Simulated assay, not measured.
Amino acid sequence: MTWSPPLREELRGVEPYGAPQLDVPVQLNTNENPYGPPAEVVAEIATRVAQAAGRLNRYPDRDFTALRSALRDYLAAESGVRVAVEQVWAANGSNEVMLHLLQAFGGPGRVAMSFAPTYSMYPEYARDTHTAWVEGHRHDDFSFDLDHAAALIAEHRPSVVLLPSPNNPTGTALPHDVVGQVAALVGDGVLVIDEAYAEFRRTGTPSALELLADHPNLVITRTMSKAFAAAGLRLGYLAADPRVCDALRVVRLPYHLSSTTQATALAALAHAPVLLGRVDQLRKERDALVRWLRERDFAVADSDANFVLFGRFDNRRAVWEQLLDHGVLIREVGPAGWLRVSIGTPDEMEAFKDALTKVGRQ
């Protein structure tokens, strides 16, 4: 008798999530910070991890109080909004933060919702928590369609609405009035504003943290993977009403943040100004790339993130493959006919421009 594992029916034939990881000279497909941590930060991390290693026989602080306090202080410095320690939560990447939210507030008989184009992992969080998934749409220019959202929310009464701002894959940020109105529409549900790329937002683009005190159903998620140049750390976090954080304590796995993760994150936060020192440069590179693409008559979405969505191509797959042939890896993602490129070093951006010039529009 041939045995096969009793896989859930909805998982049969599903490919695991993941962007291509290819060994090419220019990797601009996963929105990483191209600049690694400087030597003094690496040394601080090594020191703190070594100290934590001496107590690996003991479980870590399961409520990671010191880390929550340091994250609270960072958010206050970055956004001007100071929350209580009890309003901060963290997990292994913003992916696990989102999963905690769907475990606590989704589930059978409940609905999670977003508006396309949007982050492709959201429906997977819903699937993994047996939460029904409903996806609306945005305007053609990727701005938020509030009338459409109001109708869809009224029809489905979602318990969780997920809105990235800046949006992935378009880079589009949400204005305060949209966030406030959607929070009101969601009512007893939870509105999650995913600010994974918030540090890259343009001057004058606010953070939804400013609205937290007025909307108890609002949750703002962040990550250290992007601006902090710490994708390998896997540390995501959120700010929300303390009752939200208390609910997440129920669904998290015991001791879910290891001692070494907490030590590394604390070291990184202690050096936040240094690690964020390249953000302004990356913003300038992004804005320069937007101008360059538009001068060549590409369609380009306005971006407040560290990537640019551009098009439109009759055969984007062919363009992606030919860029790869020139040693440049970008991302085939988002609406049909569009491609996304992460912002890299000046040399990497020149390599991308040169390759795209040679490949053309197809």
Rank of each mutant, 00 (worst) to 15 (best):
S4G: 08
S4I: 13
S4E: 14
S4K: 13
P5V: 13
P5F: 12
E10M: 00
L22A: 14
L22F: 11
N33I: 02
P38M: 05
P38E: 02
A39E: 15
A43I: 08
A46I: 05
A46R: 10
V49R: 14
Q51G: 07
L56Q: 09
L56G: 09
N57R: 12
Y59H: 12
D61V: 11
D63T: 14
D73V: 08
V81L: 03
V83Q: 03
A90D: 02
G93N: 06
V97L: 01
V97Y: 02
M98T: 11
L99M: 13
L99T: 07
Q103R: 15
A104N: 05
F105Y: 15
G106D: 01
M113Y: 13
S114F: 09
T118R: 04
A126T: 02
A132L: 11
G136M: 10
G136I: 04
H137N: 13
D140F: 13
S143P: 02
F144T: 06
D145G: 06
A149K: 04
R157P: 04
P158D: 05
V161M: 07
L163I: 15
S165E: 01
S165M: 07
P169H: 03
P175V: 00
V178D: 04
Q181K: 11
V190D: 04
I193V: 15
D194K: 05
Y197H: 10
F200D: 00
F200T: 00
T203L: 11
A213F: 03
A213G: 10
H215E: 04
H215M: 03
P216Q: 08
P216R: 04
R222E: 09
T223A: 01
S225N: 07
A229Y: 07
R234F: 07
L235R: 03
G236L: 01
G236A: 07
A247I: 08
A247D: 08
A247L: 09
Y255Q: 08
Y255M: 05
L257W: 03
L257N: 06
S258T: 09
S258M: 04
T260I: 07
T264L: 06
H271T: 09
H271V: 02
L275V: 02
R283T: 03
K284I: 13
E285F: 05
R291N: 12
D297F: 11
A299H: 14
D304I: 01
N306T: 00
L309M: 13
D314L: 11
R317F: 08
R317T: 08
A318V: 11
L323E: 09
I330K: 02
R331L: 14
P335L: 01
P335M: 01
A336I: 12
W338R: 00
D347F: 03
D347C: 04
L356V: 07
V359E: 00
R361H: 10
